[in-house]
């Protein structure tokens, strides 16, 4: 697919979201967060729901496992050497910043690269950043992944097999990082979270607010 065609599809995907809105789009437009670091989402994204394999246990898991915890949901892949570990590192820093509230947070990394990210590989990867149950690697069947991506307006493209040449740069995925409250409701798009300027104090303050309210 040509880049132009891909971009068109991306735009179509985005405009198909209930998320529309100029503020959101400008927040997504640039990896250096020129727009707001945090975009409120309440009422604009469905509540947390999914069914996938928890790579730590190898068993199916649903949103029920996260009930009562604020959740950061991110779609990525292990062969992503730059922005994915940057995002996960930001999550690890956030847990530290949250202090005694840190262990209450759940950070869910959903792989979009089912060909390469086996249960064992994703488990080893996630463990580099933090321990379960705070850090969770999720791996769906193709149908489960598709359902989750659709629900959360996430676009991904991983057309490669494990042996394709330079597969990394051909894999694309939405950078959208979402915060859900302990009640499962969508709270915000953390627009600056997958960047080198994540504004962690603001994210920590928002997480504490969602915890107070529940």
């Amino acid at each position: 697919m040509s880049r132009q065609a891909l971009d068109r599809r991306t735009m179509l995907g985005l405009s198909g979201l209930a998320l529309g809105g100029l503020a959101l789009r400008s927040a997504w437009a640039d990896s250096a967060p020129a727009g707001p670091a945090i975009v409120p989402l309440e009422g604009h994204l469905p509540p947390l729901a999914f069914r996938m394999e928890d790579v730590e246990t190898g068993r199916p898991v649903t949103e029920a496992a996260f009930r009562g915890h604020p959740v950061i949901l991110y779609f990525g892949f292990t062969r992503c050497p730059d922005t994915c570990p940057l995002t996960m590192q930001n999550a690890a820093k956030l847990v530290t910043l949250l202090g005694k509230d840190g262990p209450d947070l759940r950070v869910a990394f959903v792989t979009i690269d089912l060909a390469y990210d086996t249960q064992a590989r994703l488990k080893a990867y996630v463990a580099k950043f933090g321990k379960p149950p705070v850090f969770t690697g999720l791996r769906g069947t193709p149908a489960e992944l598709k359902a989750a991506a659709k629900r959360f307006g996430v676009y991904y493209r991983a057309p490669t097999g494990p042996d394709s040449p330079d597969p990394e740069s051909a894999i694309r995925h939405s950078s959208a990082t979402y915060l859900f409250g302990p009640d499962g409701r969508a709270v915000a798009l953390l627009a600056s979270f997958p960047t080198s300027r994540p504004d962690l104090p603001a994210v920590a303050a928002l997480i504490r607010k969602t915890m107070d309210r529940s």
């Binding site: 971009d7 997504w28 990896s31 992503c80 740069s169 939405s174």
Partner: peptide, 17 residues
């Protein structure tokens, strides 16, 4: 080893050579 740049376009993270 390759020279790469991470880009975010319209909410899509990607890398380019």
């Amino acid at each position: 080893a390759m020279l790469h740049r991470s880009l975010n376009r319209s909410g899509m993270d990607m890398m380019i050579d």
